[in-house]
Design a protein around this nucleic acid. Structure first.
Lengths: 337, 337
DNA sequence: GGGAATTTCGTAACCGGTTTCGTAACCGTT
DNA sequence: AACGGTTACGAAACCGGTTACGAAATTCCC
């Protein structure tokens, strides 16, 4: 059996109350008594039961949930998401909160909340949940912060980058290199990815270039395999694009491979741009031109915002971070035939 | 204020005891009464407070900790580890356990255990902790399972592959291709990685090939960058190796890059082999020859074993999983000069 | 030296559940 | 009618903490 506050009290010859006072650094206890109790606490390495604490003071479990889509595979295999996770977990750790991983199947995440296991949630990849998850969370007034823009509503808190700006950086870069047939591959699953996709069209229009819908592909998933398959499909065409903009780096890696397998060279024949700047982007062959977004910082920021919400601090409902175009080896001037 | 068992009892006109019986599917309650209580539970979507439960029945918090090294960056950016994480979290999720991420700085993970926040730990990358973490866990009799072999002692439970066999598969493959100057790059941080490294020497000796210590490099970390730097160092030599065996895929990707930057081709000039078979291994250029280990299954298995330990079931102290050599494009016959 | 203020500490209730044990009500037997 | 055996339920203690309140002991002040 483990040591309890009562046992410490008994050995010190005082009441539980006094021990509790010492544990919580409260006044009204004689320095000598405090010292004696501290000695016992250290001797037994006594740690007050967190659950008993949470239940007696009617408050904080100090636990926060990271909500992950049920189809977790692509999240765990995308270094962008794992970097966000790292940011979330690091920030919580530093602030003394504990992180629980919660899979968003059915409604069990609501149970986790009602059972007081967590005080709120950080949403990892909010585009991949059931449509109504946001409504449910809002309806039940569960505190949460999303790591991506979900909708235009002001009622929800999120941290994101300016996806439109990021997309424009890519498109301006490709257009400046002379590309006119630029494909886009990506799943418009939520507001932020829709913005990314829209920038493709907007940029073309801005420069008076034709918009060819057949050059916009919407795969089922955002995996390397999807990028590979979609790019292969494009390259089988009689008139393939000279540049492909993919919604993320993981897909871009697959696309480069497909292009090479189809007998084309990157970037000599086809330029490729990704999004995120995952660590591997600078190690693939050719190195990947991409848009860097601060994944780790995004996670930290989301966690910080959630804690502030829990502490009833007034905070802005969204936080927009900077992006940067990283030009590497996968993009080059259009081939002059 | 949230609904409690007492409130349900009051509205049903019964005692807390009876409601508790219904909640836990216990006998001794009239079907009609049970129904009335169930109706109220559903109406309010009542979820019993998990902490109150954990504290009253002197038992299970149903929480398990995933212990992660403080220097978490390389763990989160290595798809092998994140796949293990996915396995752990999926298994726990299916079995109704909750997963908490715990950083292993100082001794706070012991606090987390003593505070009853978790019932036990899965150790993610046990080579990277402070030396004494295992001793501490053992000394305090904290239930834990490691996802890698730590030492030869029988006192600890772990899941692993046969690293020696895996290494031998690589070496036999390279030697069969005619390679004689085979380098090894990797950090011998724990028993399993030492076995991997030893297989390099054992295989050379077995085939009567010379063992050249200058071809064995021990970088500080296991990152892509380390693999890159170490390989570059090797390739600057007057008599560079014709093949490099790296302790993991992430490093191998860096090595391929360095070799190419040094003006050599893979696999024509230098063959490269990794370890793990991360998802990206088949998408890099050239595709990576590697040893597949079942990362996801390893995670699941570790979680399963920990649960069985907590349930006092007798289980073997280790579980060894199969490996498989995956030959891809990064290895080829030695160049005949 | 006596009353007030302050310091120090304990009693008991409480948080939201579980569990032990006792008992009233009902049943069927003889 | 008396008895024993179920069935259905509640009172109260308990888990390990926190907290409101009261009171004893000490100090202060005139």
């Amino acid at each position: 059996m483990n040591i309890t506050i009562g046992e410490i009290a008994r050995q010190a010859g005082v009441s539980k109350t006094t021990v509790s006072r010492v544990l919580n650094n409260k006044p009204d206890v004689d320095p000598a008594t405090r010292e004696k109790i501290m000695a016992l606490i250290n001797e037994y390495n006594f740690q007050p039961n967190a659950f008993a604490k949470a239940i007696s003071r009617q408050s904080s479990s100090q636990h926060i949930g990271l909500l992950i889509p049920h189809k977790a595979e692509y999240v765990f295999s995308n270094a962008f998401y794992t970097e966000v996770m790292r940011g979330v977990s690091t920030e919580l750790d530093e602030q003394g909160y504990y992180l629980m991983l919660c899979y968003a199947h059915d409604v069990n995440y609501m149970d986790i909340y009602h059972q007081k296991r967590v005080e709120g949630f950080v949403l990892l990849s909010p585009g991949s949940y059931n449509k109504n998850i946001i409504e449910t969370l809002n309806a039940e007034e569960v505190p949460f912060v999303s790591t991506s823009k979900i909708s235009e509503q002001e009622t929800m808190t999120y941290v994101d980058i300016d996806n439109h700006q990021g997309g424009m950086l890519v498109m301006e870069h490709l257009i400046a290199l002379g590309h006119r047939r630029i494909a886009y591959i990506g799943k418009p699953s939520l507001t932020s990815s829709i913005e990314r996709m829209n920038s493709h069209r907007v940029a073309l229009e801005k420069h008076g270039l034709p918009y060819d819908p057949s050059l916009v592909l919407v795969p089922e998933t955002s995996s390397t395999e999807s990028g590979h398959d979609a790019a292969r499909f494009l390259m089988q065409d009689d008139n393939p694009p000279t540049a492909i903009f993919l919604a993320n780096d993981v897909m871009a890696v697959g696309a480069i491979k497909a292009i090479q397998e189809s007998g084309f060279r990157v970037p000599e024949d086809v330029s490729v741009v990704g999004f995120d700047d995952i660590p591997l982007a600078m190690y693939v062959n050719p190195t990947l031109t991409t848009v860097r977004q601060p994944a780790y910082e995004k996670g930290r920021c989301a966690a910080r915002m959630l804690i502030e919400i829990l502490q009833k601090k007034p905070i802005p409902h969204c936080q927009i971070m900077d992006v940067e175009l990283i030009v590497r080896g996968s993009t080059g001037p259009v081939k002059t035939t």
